[in-house]
Structure formats: C-alpha cells, structure tokens
Write a protein that binds this DNA or RNA. Structure first.
Length: 828
RNA sequence: GCCGAAGUGGCGGAAUGGCAGACGCGACGGUCUCAAAAACCGUUGGGCUUCACGGCCCGUGUGGGUUCGACUCCCACCUUCGGCACCA
C-alpha cells in the first residue's frame, strides 16, 4: 500500500469535518448538562461580562452575530482563565415596532413579541454562545416591568422624578413624545419624520442633578470617544449669570438675567437679545414694534428645527422697542429678539457683545448696532473690526477694570458683580432633565393615579405591577390606547378610595434598559428587584460590549440610574460598567449599511447552514479589528472554513510520533506551541480577535507541515501541541473544539478546562535571523545564535559577499546593532 | 467650522522606531476527476535586468522634517468615515 492511500484511509477512519452535525450534537449536550449555568456560590473570582441585549425584531441579523460572537469568545476565555463568569442574555422587548405591528396586523404586541423572542432565542442558541438562559430577562414581562415601575416610585419618593408642563419634541409619525436625545437634526431618530414642539404635561427624571458627577470618568475604562460624546452632551460651561435692569413700559418685572461665559466683556454690551418664544417678549414689546415682533415670532414658529439650527444662514431679528440697563456702566441698550437665541439654553437671553462674539458681531453688522471692543487684543490695530476678537490683551473701555489682563478678567468682573449684587458666577449645562413619558401602550405603565382631591398619587408598592390590559385597541391617535381602555383607566384613589383615573402614558424604553444588568444577577426575585447579597457578589459589570450608537442615551441613562440607586441606598457603587468596548458596525458587501431596500443583506442563518456556526463566528472575528467593523465579504469565509478543516485533519490524524524529547523538531514544536499561546492569550485579552485567528491559522499550518514532513517528533510534545490548539480554539469555535477535545481522548468538557499556560523559556528561539543593512538598506540576512555579541555579528556581516560589495572602498562611520534583529553599517 | 478615528498589494488586513505586506480572499499554475465543484500543493506589491541562479531600483494619501534607520514620531496639507455644531 502506498503512502498516499494510507493517509487517505486514516482520514476516512477519522471522518470528515461536518459542522452541522457536531454543532447540533454539542448544543444539545451542553443544554442537557446545563454546562453554562452560572452558580452564585462559586469561590472563583467573579467576572460579569455583558453584551447589549437585542430588541426582538423577529430575526437575528448579522449585526447581532458581529456583536455577540467575539463577546462570547472573551467571556469563555475568562471562564477558562479561572473566573466564575456571568454572561447573560435577554430581550429589550417594549417599544414601537410591536405596537406598529399591532396596528397593521391586528395582533397584540405581547403575542407578536413573544413569538419573535421564541424565534430569536433559537437563533441565539444556534450561535453556540455560553449564555445562561436561566437568567433570561424580558423587559415586557410583568415580572420585570413590575420592578421598572418600582424604580419609578423610588425615584419619585427621592425627588428625582417630577411632572411638569413642557414644550416637548413630538413626532407626528410615531405619534409620541421624544427625548432630546432621540431627535437628530430636527428629525425623529426612529422614523426620520420632522419633529415639532408641543406643550404637554410630562414626567421627567432629574438627571441634571448628576451633571457634574456624570462628567467624572475616573476609574472607568471606557473609550475616549464615548467619554467625549457624553461630555459634549452634558455641555458644562462656566460663566456668570448677570442681572440687567429692564426699561420697558409694559413689563411687570424690573430685571432680567442672562447667562454668559464672558462676564468680562460686559462693558462691551451694545444690545440684548431674547429668544422669540421667551415669555417676556409679549409684555415688553412697545406698540410701535408689536406688529413686526408678532410677525417674526410667527415666522419662527413655522420654521423647522433644521432651518433654525443651520449655522450657514444669515442672522435675523427684530427690535422690541424695549431697553435694558447695563448695571456695570449704566448704559441703556436695545432689546431684540432673534432666532439664533434658544429658549432652552441658559435663560433664553443673550447679552450682545459684538466685538468679542462672532454671532453677535454678525448680528450687529446686519442691523447697524454699535461695536465696542473691551480688550486691546494684540492682533487688533484699532481700526474697524472685520470679525469678533478672540481672547487676549488687556481690558479697555471698561471703567474700573481698564488695564486688567485677559487671564484675570473673568474672575475680577465676576467678583465685582457678586459684591455689587449685579450677578454671580454660575455653571450652565446643555443637558436637560430626562423626559420619560410616552403616549404609547407597549411600555411599562407609569404607576400613578390621578385623584380629584389628592392629585397625582403614586400606586402603592404592594399593588405593583400596574398591568397592561391584554385587550387594548390599537389606533394611531396620538394618545396611548390605554386612554380608551375603560378597565384600565378607571380605578380608585389609594388615599381616599374615591373614583380616580390612571396615568395612561408609559415609560421610555430606555428606562427598562437602564437597570437590566442588575436584574440578571437575581432574575427571579419576587420581593425586590435584586437582593443586596447578589448585588455585592456580582455588580458592577466588569466588561460591557456594544455599539457606539448608544454613547449618549443608554450609556448615560444607566450611569444616572446607578448613581441614583446609590443615593437611594439600593447599591453601593457609582458606575454600572467598569470597562466598555465599542465594536464597529458590520456593513453589506458593497460597504453600505445592510438593508432590504439595498438588497445587500446577508442572513446569518444562511451562512450557518452553509458553513456552520464555528466558521461564521471565526470569520466575523477574522475580518478585521473589531472596533472598526466594515463590509462583510461573503467570499472570504472559505479561508476560515479551510482552516477549520486543516485543524480537524491535523488533530484527528496520526503524526509520526516517537519518544524523542530532545530532538530538534521537538524543540521547534514546543517553541511554536508556546509562542502561539503567548500571542493568542494577549490578543484575546485585548479584543484583537483578527490577529488571534491568524495566529491559530499559522500554528495549524505549522502542525500540518510538521506532520506531512514525516519527521518524527516527540509524542508528548505533539499531544501537548494539539491539546493547546484545541483549548485555544475553544472560545471562538466552541463546537469543533469540543468535538476535537473528545476525539483527543480528553475528558468532557473543553469549556471547563484551564487556559494553556505560556512558558517563556520554551518559546525562546535559540537562533535569530538578523538583517544586515548598509546605510539602512537590507543587503543580507544572517542566522546568528540568540543574543550574539556585536563583534560576532559584525564579523559575520562583513564576511558576506553582498554586504562587502556595498562596503568596499568606503569608510565605516558607525555600526548600529540591535541583538536578534538587525545590524546597520553606516558608510561614507 | 470644531473634535476624534482612519488612509498600506486587485480586496480584507498585519507590522506602533529596526527585514513592509503576517494571516486570509481573489488570481494564475498544478494534483485528483470523464467533467465540474470541493479538497490539496505551488506562485503572487510594482518596475528594470539576467539563459538561469541572482541582482538593482521604486513602494505604506501628499509635501517637508527628526533619526544610522520612519507605515510608525513631529509640522503642514488632501481624502474618507464617525460625532458635535448659533449652547451665549
């Protein structure tokens, strides 16, 4: 029998790699054995790994796989490294799509949601993740939203929730209110419809109370980008609130306040501007100006937010006929209204300092208002200004402050204002309180009852949950369907027992996701959202992964919730997630976002059917750096599939082994094994999955070559090499690893084994290839003993013909030697 | 406009001061096959040169700089992608 046929027979005996069969087999076994059940009473150090839970839209798409497979691999790695790992999964199942489906197809959102969850749970299982399903959390289940309502009551009783009439963003398409964060470029974040303002009674959470604390990221390993986005969103500005006297016949107040970051420019105020919607506008406008003002206010209200926020367009405004008095110098300046002033920031008013603010400058130029510089800026020659002056120089035209240098000006003027009662130093934020009311049915009902006598009365804790009716009618009306549901609406006042009405708004779904990570630790607790003991054991989350699109909403809200929970005595830490990693976004093969209309959608189920879950998982990791995302190229997956085949063949076949512990091929095998362990360990720990897979491929290629060379190697070293390979594959390709582990005759399960140890002594090469350069250009390569001395290297280099040719006839000016790497001969 | 990330073969990418292109895809050549697919083996940055072995030059968005040595550090600019954007 020839050599060839022998090999063939061995392969046949071992069987071919058939991913679908082994994946089904092991998934069933793991499930039956509860392999991934996370015990609470495990003495090993805990590791809470979390990946953002999905909205149950009906199908797992490639983005879920891209987010979850590497996350799962890392969690599995931590488990093999000796941690008791909690890696749970659930569904963020309240929200608009279910309700829209209900309107369109006349199914109850609960039904639609339940069947979607059912389907997605199966798809998630097919992925081969180590989720502990006994801890599953479904935010739309009464067992969960009961506690969401409990949180609302807690926040209310700690004065962190309140109700007020407010102009709020309204989406005419979704027929609901939106939070500021859900409005992008004046459009609904969800459906793209142009939004408008509406006045409604709404519930808010006092997130602004935590604005300063939310700016503190110390102790958090979060991407700089997310921190920056949150800082920008919170928008902290230091400055002063200054008081101006009001000189308008119709006004009932004598004073108006304005926030400024430049109180030091107050002597340069030549006009004053109010937002067109400012409540004072109607009262201070003089009769002569009334028509013009009214027309302007109306025109503004008709503008879309997009137009209004455009920086390009020319500033417009109208004089009100009123004046204010600058208390610092007694000057009387005109009050205008202009749409570049926003009612929602500061006090809705701006002091116009055209010499030092570009926006004010443009406004003053257009309307012929005077411009008075109050700093002798070094770049300014004293002539007419063509643009506003920046910081720098000493104060001028500023009465007692003349000569004060730029750096001291703000503090000096603020102090003076405080002494004279003209105002005070203060801090202003862009962040607004979090509006949580939604005029929708498929959300957690706000647990409030309205009584004619007692007003808004919280539902007593023991009456929770306030259940959603299962027979509500769905009509797109702009009000919650709960409003029409008599059974839900009518109740009695918890205080007096008289007939009362329930709140019909539900809570923003971001509330559900603000605390879900806390529920996973104790998901079946019927007494509390979670026990104190469990919180001490598991929280906070050690590693969170998810998309950067949640940087300012979910991730800011959950931080707020945690801080509020701490102040309410519910938890004992300050931050919900210690480490955060943002993966990139996976795109269609054409580099565009995947969408049905573009026809570039890759269905994960198809990929799994064709290649198996392991191949698909590993390929998603192999594509490129996880944080970058990028296009999915369906043709490249064959490379990963071939690798798994090679790994299968090398691990299931025989090698020509013997007891040869000291032989050179054995040393080489040991070296490769430990070099790979070092590389893979480092890569997976740092979320560099692409180079991790590449290292495993290289190792597999090396093993294949070694086996095919026919050179005998030591049996123990060979077994160690194969075991190491399989162990290192276990986090990323869990099914084939389990199968190969069994075929190597090792005890079940590969996933409960320890991660292979790296021995630096074994990884050490005893020879090194040293590049020899002449004037920085590589002319030869030498194989030298490890850590060879410089003179040895130099002598060998000069003996090389290729090197000598470039050195001949020249003087050696310098030699740079980097042991084991390079020798550079500098000649003149 | 401001802030951040990125720009490397035909493509995804690797290398963060020391041999550019690891690992893959694709392509080309081969083995097997009636054939195709699959699988496996080999070659593959560009150019010039040599019968051949080989040798030489160029090359990491562009232009400068630092250095014995730069994809990597510094300065200026261009492009792409994110985020923010009249926030007083």
């Amino acid at each position: 029998m020839s050599e060839q046929t022998q090999t063939k027979d061995r392969t046949q005996q071992a069987g071919r790699y058939e991913p679908r069969a082994i994946e089904r087999k092991w998934q069933a076994r793991w499930h039956a054995d509860e392999l991934y059940r996370t015990p609470d009473d495990d003495p090993r150090p805990k590791w809470y790994a979390l990946t953002m839970f999905p909205y149950p839209s009906g199908d797992l798409h490639i983005g879920h796989w891209y987010a979850m497979s590497p996350s799962d691999a890392h969690a599995r790695f931590m488990r093999m490294r000796g941690h008791n790992v909690l890696f749970p999964m659930g569904f963020d199942s309240f929200g608009l799509p279910a309700e829209n489906a209900a309107i369109k197809r006349h199914v109850h959102p609960a039904e639609w949601t339940a069947s979607n969850i059912e389907r997605m749970r199966e798809q998630l299982r097919a992925m081969g993740t180590m989720f502990d399903w006994t801890r599953e959390v479904v935010t739309s289940s009464p067992e969960y939203y009961r506690w969401t309502q409990w949180w609302f009551l807690q926040l209310l009783s700690h004065d962190l929730a309140y109700k007020k009439q407010a102009a709020v963003w309204w989406c005419p398409n979704d027929q609901t209110v939106l939070a500021n964060e859900q409005v992008l470029d004046g459009k609904c974040e969800r459906c793209g419809a142009v939004v408008a303002k509406r006045d409604l009674e709404q519930w808010f959470f006092r997130i602004t109370r935590y604005a300063d604390e939310l700016l503190d990221f110390s102790g958090l390993e979060w991407p700089e980008q997310v921190q920056t986005m949150q800082r920008n969103w919170i928008g902290r500005s230091e400055g002063a609130e200054l008081r101006f006297g009001l000189d308008a016949p119709g006004a009932d107040t004598e004073e108006i306040r304005v926030f400024t970051t430049r109180p030091d420019t107050v002597y340069g105020v030549t006009f004053f501007v109010l937002a067109p919607e400012h409540p004072l506008v109607a009262r201070i406008t003089t009769d002569e100006q009334r028509d013009a003002v009214r027309a302007y206010v109306e025109a503004t209200s008709r503008e879309t937010e997009i137009d209004r926020l455009s920086t390009e367009r020319e500033k417009t405004g109208v004089f009100t006929g009123a004046y204010v008095i600058n208390k610092f110098n007694g000057e009387r300046v005109p009050v205008w209204i202009a749409d570049y002033v926003l009612l929602t920031y500061g006090t809705g008013a701006v002091m116009g300092v055209p010499a030092h603010d570009q926006r004010d400058f443009e406004f003053a130029k257009k309307y012929g208002l005077s411009i008075i510089p109050v700093f002798q800026h070094p770049d300014w020659d004293g002539g007419e200004l063509t643009q506003a002056l920046g910081h720098g120089g000493r104060m001028i035209n500023s009465g007692p402050f003349n000569g004060t240098p730029d750096e001291e000006a703000i503090a000096a003027v603020t102090r003076y204002a405080e002494e004279r009662g003209f105002g005070a130093g203060t801090v202003s934020y862009r962040l607004r309180d979090w509006l949580i009311s939604r005029q929708r049915m498929w959300g957690a009902p706000i647990p409030i009852i309205y009584c004619d006598e007692h007003g808004a009365v919280p539902v007593p804790e023991h009456d929770l949950p306030v259940l959603l009716p299962d027979d509500a009618e769905f009509r797109p009306t702009g009000e919650s369907p709960l409003t029409y549901h008599e059974g839900f609406l009518h109740t009695t006042c918890p205080r007096c027992g008289k007939p009362a009405r329930r709140e019909t708004d539900t809570m923003d779904t971001f509330m559900c996701s603000s605390w879900y990570q806390m529920r996973y630790i104790d998901p079946h607790n019927g007494e509390r959202p979670f026990s104190r003991e469990q919180a001490r054991r598991w929280l906070p989350v050690d590693q969170y992964t998810g998309g950067a699109e949640h940087a300012v909403m979910h991730l800011l809200y959950t931080r707020f919730f945690t801080k509020a929970a701490r102040d309410m005595g519910v938890v004992e830490f300050d931050e919900p997630m210690r480490r955060l990693f943002n993966q990139g976004q996976i795109l269609g093969p054409d580099g565009q976002r995947m969408s049905k209309s573009r026809g570039n959608v890759i269905a994960p189920d198809d990929q799994v059917e064709r290649w198996g879950a392991d191949t698909f998982r590993a390929y998603l990791m192999f594509l490129g750096p996880w944080e970058l995302g990028g296009p999915y190229d369906p043709s490249g997956i064959t490379g990963v599939h071939r690798w798994l085949n090679r790994a299968w063949n090398v691990a299931t076949g025989d090698a020509g082994t013997a007891s040869l512990p000291g032989a050179p091929p054995t040393r080489d095998l040991r070296r490769w094994t430990h070099k790979t362990i070092a590389k893979v360990t480092e890569d997976i720990a740092n979320f560099r999955f692409n180079t991790m897979v590449a290292a495993l491929m290289e190792f597999t290629n090396y093993l294949t070559k070694t086996r095919e060379s026919g050179e005998p190697v030591d049996a123990v070293a060979w077994d160690d090499a194969l075991a190491s390979l399989v162990l290192m594959m276990a986090p990323s390709t869990p099914h084939i690893a389990e199968e190969l582990w069994a075929r190597l005759g090792r005890p079940y399960s590969v996933h409960t084994q320890s991660w292979p140890e790296f021995d630096p002594a074994l990884a050490m090469e005893d020879e090194a290839e040293v590049a020899v350069q002449v004037n920085g250009k590589v002319r030869d390569r030498l194989l030298l003993p490890r850590d060879a001395a410089e003179d040895v290297a130099r002598e060998r280099a000069l003996a090389s013909e290729a090197v000598a040719a470039h050195v001949a006839g020249k003087d050696i000016a310098r030699v740079i030697y980097v042991p084991n790497r390079l020798l550079n001969i500098v000649v003149k």
